[in-house]
Structures are given as C-alpha cells and as structure tokens.
Computed example of a mutant assay.
Amino acid sequence: MADPSGRRPRHSVCVTLCQYMLRCPDRAPRQCEWVTYREFKDAAPFVGAFARHFSGRLPALKSACAAIGGRLPEAEDFSCDFFQVFEALPRIPLLMLFNDADERFLPGVPFCLSGGRSSFWQWRDGFLPTT
C-alpha cells in the first residue's frame, strides 16, 4: 500500500484497510442506526481532541468538512450546532455531530458509524478507522 507520492501509510491505516477488505459486508444495511465511537471498546480517548481544536471555530470546521467531502445526511436532522456525513470508506458512512462550547458545557463531537458496520471493526493500536 502506498499513497500517490509512493509513501507507505501508517501501520494503523494499513490495518484498517485490511480489516475493511476482509470484513466489510457486500451491501450497506437498509436501515441506518448510528453507533457512537464511545460505544466501541478502546475508542473513547479520541473524541475530546477534535472538539477542543474546533471549539469557537465553527466556520473553520465547516470549511474543513467541505474540503473533505462532508455532506448533510439524507432525511435526518440532529439537535446540535453542526453535523455532516462523510464516506469514510465505501459503504462506511461516518456521522459527525458538533456541539460548540458555551457557558455551561464543554465542546462535544460525537462521531458515529452506521450500526450495521460496528460489528466488523476491531480497535487496535489506538486508531480510528478514519485515520
């Protein structure tokens, strides 16, 4: 595996892509139920850093999301400041829900995978499937 420049990706990226090729079902589920990263074993530590980076910078977050192909999910609405869906890999939608900090709460960014996909991800080496 190599990127367009010929550089080998990090080990965690290689593991993620191999898991995807070996375990991803052929078809996406018809019903989409979102499962947060916090529900995955060993995944919770990754959520806070992203939220802190974009706290108070909603326009920057919107620009970053647009630059990497974020879009609004079909027929869904969420109660948060901003949300987008990304195609992490084919048939693997990734949902980002962003709540900015205010006088009572710290910023929060739950990331969610389609529930039908959660069963084949195995979290290892401290990475997310989107790295």
Results as ranks from 00 to 15, higher is better:
A2W: 13
D3S: 04
D3T: 03
P4G: 08
S5Y: 07
S5M: 06
S5A: 12
G6K: 05
R10M: 15
H11K: 12
H11Q: 11
S12F: 07
V13G: 08
V13Q: 13
C14R: 14
V15W: 06
L17M: 02
L17V: 02
L17S: 00
C18G: 12
M21S: 11
M21Q: 15
M21P: 00
L22G: 01
L22I: 01
R23P: 00
R23M: 06
R23S: 08
D26C: 14
D26V: 11
A28K: 10
C32W: 12
E33T: 12
V35L: 10
Y37L: 09
R38Y: 13
E39A: 11
E39S: 15
F40M: 12
A43M: 15
A44R: 09
P45Y: 04
P45S: 01
P45L: 02
F46E: 03
G48V: 08
A49S: 11
A49I: 10
A49L: 10
F50Q: 06
F50A: 08
R52L: 10
R52N: 14
F54Y: 15
F54R: 02
L58M: 15
P59F: 01
P59K: 01
A60T: 06
L61C: 01
K62V: 03
A64T: 03
A67T: 11
I68C: 09
I68W: 06
R71K: 09
L72M: 12
P73H: 04
E74M: 10
E74F: 03
A75N: 15
A75Y: 08
E76Y: 00
F78P: 01
S79W: 12
C80F: 05
C80W: 04
C80M: 03
D81F: 02
F83L: 00
V85R: 00
L89G: 01
P90T: 05
R91G: 02
I92N: 12
P93L: 08
L94E: 06
L95I: 10
L95P: 06
M96Q: 10
F98S: 05
F98V: 08
N99L: 07
D100H: 05
A101Q: 07
D102C: 02
D102R: 05
D102L: 09
E103M: 07
R104C: 09
F105L: 13
F105H: 14
L106Y: 08
G108Q: 04
V109G: 03
P110Q: 00
F111P: 00
C112V: 03
C112W: 01
L113Y: 06
G115M: 04
G116M: 06
S118L: 05
S118F: 10
W123Q: 14
W123S: 14
P129S: 01
